[in-house]
Design a protein around this nucleic acid. Sequence first.
DNA 1: GCCATATGAGACATTCTTGTCTCATGAGAA
DNA 2: TTCTCATGAGACAAGAATGTCTCATATGGC
Lengths: 192, 192
Amino acid sequence: MSHMAYACLMAVDREHVLRSAAALLARKSTSTMDEVAKAAGISRATLHRLFAGRDALVRALEGLGIEECEAALTAARLGEDTAPEAVRRLVRELEPAAGLLAFLYTENQLFEGEQLYEGWARIDAGIAALFRRGQQSGEFRIDLTPAWLTEALYGLMASAAWAVSEGRAAPKDFTHMVVELLLGGALRREES
Amino acid sequence: MSHMAYACLMAVDREHVLRSAAALLARKSTSTMDEVAKAAGISRATLHRLFAGRDALVRALEGLGIEECEAALTAARLGEDTAPEAVRRLVRELEPAAGLLAFLYTENQLFEGEQLYEGWARIDAGIAALFRRGQQSGEFRIDLTPAWLTEALYGLMASAAWAVSEGRAAPKDFTHMVVELLLGGALRREES
DNA sequence: GCCATATGAGACATTCTTGTCTCATGAGAA
DNA sequence: TTCTCATGAGACAAGAATGTCTCATATGGC
């Protein structure tokens, strides 16, 4: 087996294991390394060969979350169209990563060692900039700070991901639930 | 020391310890029994005398959360006034318990043994009924289910509690942030 | 067929947390 | 003062999860 083939195989496996771990930990954040391994269909030994330890695994998951968020930000083209439309695209792009995001969002111990803090800061800044743009254009209200709107976006996505995984909501409604509540709120609009 | 005095002292201590534990676990949900004890200013031995074990402590916290929620539901008089006003009162009454709620909300393992499920079900039903009332009166939009609005209320309160405890938002803005986003959303209203 | 190597199975020590125990101490009641 | 009892300090064992190790196996390239 050549070096290239070896590297490629490893990358594929790491990716697959990471996805499985994300799906499992999103449901049960206290899952054991053994459970993570079984969920990925590999042995605990191999899991430890791929990730030095639990910390490394969580860190890798955080890295994956950052990657997916940045990809979503890019794909959503937050600078184009009206701000509400951009928010809708953002949520739609973020939806596949919602479970992972929910896990990372509640894993408050992540910020003890703040290596990857920059990554999240850039993402937060990008989302907050979108809300700020909407405020400056007069589309969004100005009595709620961009920071809080960003936080609320995370919180609603986590709640929606949780509701879907618990069967309390249909997966197809995810984007609608989050976007409509985040943008329009519960109040009925006057037909204008 | 008489039996009455004994019972009274114990009750007070349990309450205080429970509050401390709630405050600590809201910030770091993996805190050790030793850390919980130190945070409450007692020894681990006494903590174990008050609560049989970690499970019992978490169960007691869940019981406290249910109590506070029910008290808040009662105090908020959800059946009176307009639905939006009732929501505002509800959030205001719920605010002191927000940290505890955030902890319980993310402690998904609670529902493995579903002893206290009834308590939460009653609370959820009460809140959902409020949203349903608002929908029937035409104040709330009907394309978002009462169940999702309830879920979103929890999620936003958790996000806000988290943002406040991290210093990303001012405590005094808590109710405003939650209520305004939940009811009105990010979109600017047309002045009518 | 032969060899390299990634994998799985499992043993093992280590660490952390928990739960239980004992004992000395100090505060409060009689 | 004296007694009672809750408390704190600490030792101890049990259990779980982790990290590391070895070895047998099987898969894939030569």
